[in-house]
Write a protein that binds this DNA or RNA. Structure first.
Length: 302
DNA sequence: AATAGGCCCAACCGCCAGTTG
DNA sequence: ACAACTGGCGGTTGGGCCTAT
């Protein structure tokens, strides 16, 4: 017997999500939590495949997502992690709080790959590209000495980044400002050579991934907007630090969550019974969404 | 102003691993 | 052990936006 499709595709909508659909999905998940995705579209009144709902939520609607381009610091981390993990985007994303695998994959394919090639580095192997003898005069192609120098720079950077990765593991990531990044780099440089040596053999597979409760969710609009820039996307909700705001939900301040509480973990705690008081605050307030909150149907363990 | 081409990213597809009965 | 099923992952693509001509 063959594998069944993930959902009954007849009559299902495909393509870009409308804000109305987003509202329905967000409303449903805020009310009921993340449950069996297969059931979500039916229960939420969406003509979508469950998989599509899950993707939309995880890649776009999740309130803990950072928006905007990756900062230089994040980019370095991605490069370093890619060198160690390869195209395991979800693993890489797990080291960058607020970033999705899809986002990182896209950024890699559109920006970083090109950047590395331009610098004479093979994005697949992270080693200097072989010099094309037929094109050695090319301006694009760096001279061997340049490549070597750059590679040395890269190695130095990677040492720093490895340390940064470790700090991320410790929950010290999520620097929001250039100043913080700089001070972090500075403090990284203060670490002993011994630590640096240890980190040369750093392997992310050998260390636990960052736990959800270790992720500090920014309350204020992310400064990523500053890094994200001018060229920030003009897509429907692009550039916003808060999708709820964009969708017409009142601004959701994550500071209402007690981040020091060990029970608190990113979204997990979000759905705890105690936090529905906060959700009430969020959902019951005036908005043209006319959201009516019913008691959570089922609390699904995550 | 028109348009062709490139860029970017949200979303889809197909496969795989894990879970359940 | 096996089939059925779900969730998750990585690769790919379609279409809107941007820019150069």
């Amino acid at each position: 017997m063959g594998r069944q499709p993930c959902c009954d595709k007849v009559g299902l909508k495909k393509g870009p999500w409308t804000s109305e659909e987003d509202k329905k999905l967000v409303n449903f998940i805020l009310t009921n939590g993340q449950c069996c995705w297969r059931a979500v579209p039916k229960l939420a009144g969406l003509l979508r495949c469950g998989k599509s709902c899950r993707l939309r939520w995880t890649n776009y609607l999740r309130p803990d997502l950072k928006r905007g381009l990756l900062s230089e610091y994040e980019e370095k981390m991605v490069i370093d992690l890619h060198a160690q993990l390869g195209n395991r985007w979800s693993k890489i994303a797990s080291h960058l709080p607020g970033r999705t695998d899809n986002e990182i994959k896209n950024h890699w394919n559109t920006h970083i790959k090109k950047k590395l090639r331009k610098m004479g580095i093979d994005p697949l192997t992270h080693k200097p590209l072989p010099i094309d003898p037929t094109n050695h005069q090319s301006q694009e192609q760096p001279q061997p000495q340049q490549v070597l120098e750059h590679h040395q720079e890269q190695e130095q950077e990677q040492e720093q980044i490895s340390l940064a990765c470790e700090m991320t593991e410790l929950g010290l990531s999520n620097t929001e400002t250039k100043e913080e990044e700089k001070s972090m780099e500075a403090s990284m440089l203060d670490l002993s050579m011994e630590e640096v040596m240890i980190n040369n053999g750093f392997c992310t597979d050998e260390v636990p991934l960052i736990e959800a409760h270790e992720i500090l969710v920014p309350c204020a609009p992310s400064s990523s907007s500053s890094t994200s820039s001018s060229s920030s996307s003009s897509y429907s909700y692009g550039g916003s630090s808060n999708i709820f705001e964009e969708l017409g939900f009142p601004n959701f301040d994550f500071s209402i969550l007690d981040l020091d509480n060990t029970n608190v973990n990113n979204m997990g705690c979000f759905w705890d019974d105690d936090d529905f008081t906060n959700l009430d605050l969020l959902i019951n307030c005036d908005s043209d969404w006319n959201i009516t909150v019913e008691p959570p149907l089922i609390q699904y363990p995550r």
